[in-house]
Amino acid sequence: MKPILLQGHERSITQIKYNRDGDLLFSCAKDQVVNVWYSLNGERLGSYNGHTGAVWCVDVDWDTKKVLTGAADNTCRLWDCETGKKTNVFDTKSAVRTCGFDFSGNIIMFSTDKQMGYDCLIHLFDMRDSHQITQNEPYLTIPCKDSKVTSAVWGSLGEYIVVGLENGQLLQYSKKSGEILMQTKEHIKQVNDLQTSQDLTMVITASKDTTAKLFDIESLDLLKTYKTERPVNSAAISPIQNHVVLGGGQEAMDVTTTSTRIGKFEARSVCLIMFLCMSLV
């Protein structure tokens, strides 16, 4: 297999996402740039410039009209996908860690970090109400006091959001009332990433505790556990095959603080990156 190498970032990439048709690929990185690429040939379509901090998350709505990005410059920005022009800026008190459009593209969600004395908050905006957008007044703000939201996705039918926390918990928050519908704690360390299956029936978590777990999105029942020997940074469910893909490895930052023998780091010049493909069933 000959991969296409996309070199549009100068610092580490934080998230990548395809649009619904799969023809565009969005990537964001700590170098404050968000790029969009044609997935077929790797040609860069453009970049969304304007953030002044590390961009943590990116999302695109279902018809590839709008792009939402959240960054450590305490803003969440809305862009026009085609022209790369900024359409709105949501100012927040702390860095924006996760963001997402619901399936209809009408409701947007983003979560802010617990830092500088501010609690971790999840904001929900209705895009149809221009007042909310222009005045930066979310129709719902959900505080998350215990821990920090590290990953979040919209659940099925846009009724709730599924949130992974720094303490390993997995929660479901209602879109309407903001109350916790379901919760489970299967991981002992931070949930690094959450991704849903294509039909939004399952969600897979990737955790720092070196496991990835598959849950039913509705009941948050644990369906399967995938054990590895390194922290899992991301996990995804294949839309066409009975596979999950896990990616991870020792974070470069932690290499110096982890014993060489514990960290599975070994005496190699770069930290080991693993890619595992495991059977779903």
Binding site: K2, I4, L5, L6, Q7, R44, G84
Partner: peptide, 29 residues
């Protein structure tokens, strides 16, 4: 979408992949 005009950092790129950002890397086994 294939006919969208390039923007941002890719604004002045010629049609087709720009070798500065898009290359084919080594085989992955």
């Amino acid at each position: 979408r294939k006919n969208w005009k390039k923007f941002g950092n890719a604004e002045f790129d010629a049609p087709g992949p720009n070798v500065a950002t898009t290359t084919v890397s080594d085989d992955v086994l």
